[in-house]
Simulated scan of single mutants.
Amino acid sequence: MSYAKSTLYVIGDAQASVNNPITQQYSAFFIGLVVDSTDHTILDAACSSTIALTSDFVKSIFIGHSILALEPVAEEIRRRYHGSSQKALIVAFKDAQKKYKTALDLRD
């Protein structure tokens, strides 16, 4: 897949619980987001997961949302994602949001 030149790629990371299989495999939890910088819409997403379905499901939560709208995304995660990485997913999103804002500042 190719992305327009107006897109930015950001990764957010967080610590998952010690007994989480993701932590055992990757040492942390990561989410990657492709964002259209013209309107801040998340176009694509993936996360570190041990099951491909998890990454696909997480993708369905993020696509179409604004990366700048933390609470609507966090609420959707709390409502729909009931895996052991729920809190880590929200923290990773906050981290990605922070990196996105920094990237926008660097472009100005």
Rank of each mutant, 00 (worst) to 15 (best):
D105I: 11
L8P: 03
C47T: 11
A74W: 09
S2R: 12
R78E: 14
A92Y: 00
D44S: 10
A103S: 13
S48I: 05
D108W: 15
E75A: 12
I67P: 01
K99W: 11
G12D: 00
G12Q: 03
A88R: 01
K59F: 05
K98A: 10
T102H: 13
R80C: 04
V58F: 13
R107I: 10
S49L: 03
A45Y: 00
P72D: 06
G64E: 04
I42A: 01
F30L: 13
Q15N: 13
V91M: 12
G12K: 02
V18R: 15
F29V: 07
H65I: 04
D13V: 08
L68W: 05
G12A: 01
K94M: 14
V34Y: 06
K94Y: 07
K94C: 10
L68F: 07
S2P: 11
I31T: 04
R107T: 07
V73T: 08
V18F: 15
K87F: 07
D56N: 13
K94V: 06
L8Q: 06
Y3E: 09
S84W: 07
I61N: 00
Y100F: 10
T54D: 14
S66K: 07
D44N: 14
L43I: 13
H40C: 05
I31E: 03
E76A: 12
I51N: 12
A103P: 07
I51Q: 12
R78K: 15
F29R: 04
I11A: 08
A92K: 01
E75I: 06
F62D: 00
Q15M: 14
D13F: 14
N20L: 03
S6A: 09
N20P: 07
V10T: 05
P72C: 10
C47D: 06
I42N: 00
D56C: 10
I63R: 11
I11K: 10
I31G: 01
G64R: 03
T102Y: 15
V35M: 05
S55E: 06
A96W: 02
S37A: 13
E76Y: 02
I42E: 00
K99F: 06
V35R: 01
S17Q: 13
I51C: 10
G12M: 02
